[in-house]
């Protein structure tokens, strides 16, 4: 395995680390692109992107972990685009870079939280994105989930602060369309599902993975029904998975090992499909 730090993007503003397997280990023409999670730079939460990159290199797969423009080591992009548009554009540049430098023609994307959103937006634009692993995609809340969220806030901040917050937003907390998924905005469910299906319809596989920080088993089933409908149709290339022993930022070594193991399985499954 060899690693190299690259500059890329229209003005060389982005920085990424290309990890390529040893020549004898190289298998196929698929690569893995690892995205920023929130404000964390390209190494990922608890360095998980570095570990994922080196793990998949042992499977013969090159990878690129990179910083979106203005994040981590990357310079800001030229002005002109909204944040989400710029992020999607950056991911597309990274796909092109991974394909040319890593000598691959199809790319698997792995993104946590906002990384999942940015990867999904790019998958609408870039046909070389053949698979998306979206770790903690947006939650579409039902009443039960909202109640649990507030119980957790009471648990965390205490009754007085929890009630004060609840009172402050009492008019909107049940009906608002925004989710409480780590502060992210998401479109209405039908629009989101239609976009998922459009990416799947062009042949990409999508895996929505829910952590134990965002769901319990009941919530997960609810999300699964929202995304896939009452009768899940796996043939549509949209899969869901619940990993209760991994938290949102893969905080423990045990959780990290589990995620590495799942990534190996997802990639094997993708390659076998």
């Amino acid at each position: 395995m060899k690693e190299r730090t690259l500059r890329f993007g229209p003005a060389g503003e982005m920085i990424g680390t290309l990890c390529v397997p040893d020549p004898g280990q190289r298998v196929g023409t698929v690569g893995l692109l690892l995205l920023n999670a929130g404000i964390i730079h390209r190494i990922g939460p608890h360095r998980i992107n570095v570990r994922l990159a080196r793990e998949v290199a042992t499977m013969g797969i090159p990878s690129l972990r990179f910083d979106l423009s203005g994040r981590g080591d990357s310079l800001p992009a030229a002005p002109g685009l909204r944040y989400d548009e710029q992020a999607a554009r950056d991911v597309c540049h990274a796909v092109a870079t991974l394909c040319s430098e890593g000598q691959c023609d199809r790319v698997i994307l792995f993104g946590i939280c906002s990384g999942a959103d940015n990867g999904f937006a790019a998958a609408m634009l870039e046909s070389r994105i053949a698979s998306l692993v979206m770790f903690d995609p947006p939650i579409f809340p039902n009443l039960r989930w909202r109640v649990r969220i507030w119980m957790s806030k009471f648990r965390k901040y205490g009754l007085r602060a929890g009630f004060a917050r609840l009172l402050a937003i009492r008019k909107t907390w049940v009906t608002e369309s925004k989710t409480d998924s780590y502060g992210r905005d998401v479109p209405p469910v039908p629009e989101y599902v239609a976009r998922l299906r459009s990416v799947a319809d062009r042949g990409a596989s999508i895996r929505l993975v829910y952590s134990g920080s965002t769901c319990d088993a009941t919530d997960y089933e609810a999300q699964r029904r929202i995304i896939l409908g009452a009768e899940p149709r796996e043939a549509e290339r949209i899969h869901t998975e619940f990993l209760p022993d991994i938290d949102h930022v893969v905080s423990t070594r045990e959780a990290q090992e589990l995620l590495l193991s799942r990534m190996r399985a997802w990639i094997s499954e993708f390659k076998g499909a």
Binding site: K156, T214, D216
Partner: peptide, 12 residues
């Protein structure tokens, strides 16, 4: 950090 990560899961 672990408590925060699992604040929605009362048993855990």
């Amino acid at each position: 950090g672990r408590l925060g990560a699992y604040s929605m899961d009362s048993r855990k």
